[in-house]
Amino acid sequence: MFQALKNFYHKLGSFPWFYKISGKVIPIVGFFSILLIVISSIWGLFFSPTDAVQGDVYRIIYFHVPAVSVSQVIYYSMSVAAAVFLIWRMKMAGVYIKSLAPIGAAFTFIGLLSGAIWGQPTWGTWWVWDARLTSTLVLFLFYLAIIGMQSTFASRKSADTAVSIITLVGVVNLPIVKKSVDWWNTLHQPASISISGESSISSEMLIPLLLSILGVYLFVFFTGLLFMRAEISSREQNKEWFKKLSSNN
């Protein structure tokens, strides 16, 4: 069992193996992710019942919740990859962080934007400085810092290490930010707006929501693989295995 895991880890670190396997997986994942997103969108937008309190506006939940949740998951996965990179110097982890950062940034942005669009009709404001929104904004800034850092170093390895350091510093800092905004909030904003009041969701709304979340996760998997492949091919274009591969095609 341990041996099998170890083998898998070593394979995962191998660019040719990853390149080969991802080529096979991408079409399948891509197909299912888009299928799920289409189904859940149609279901959510046209067939799920209207909310008693919010009316039809709530339907943006099918974009907002998946985007926000995936943006956080991507960051946490990146920080795991950062630790792997710093400890075991696994090159694939560097590729992972570089490829996933723009995707994470995009979904954080979608989350912020859809939240604002949702917020305007329901609470009458585009933006509230509450703990969740603020920490999402900070998350977005960290993504931008990570993307910006890529070009600061001449050497690929140094850039990957720097980015890993920022990612880890960010993951240590994010809970502190969230907590401190919470404290600050209790002084400035007496809880006039409770965003967590959406827990009483009916199953007819829940199923398309779960489908859309699954769809977005698959979509991130799909685009992540695509970006990683692109990154690998730009890093390894002078390597034997890559030249052989491209001359075969």
């Binding site: 900070v138 800034l141 960290f142 810092a145 910006g148 850092m149 600061t152 800092n173 907590k179 401190s180």
Partner: peptide
């Protein structure tokens, strides 16, 4: 680059 400030300010929030 803007990376320095972009990194520094969110860290300083707490």
């Amino acid at each position: 680059s803007i990376t320095g400030p972009a990194l520094m300010l969110p860290l300083s929030l707490p």
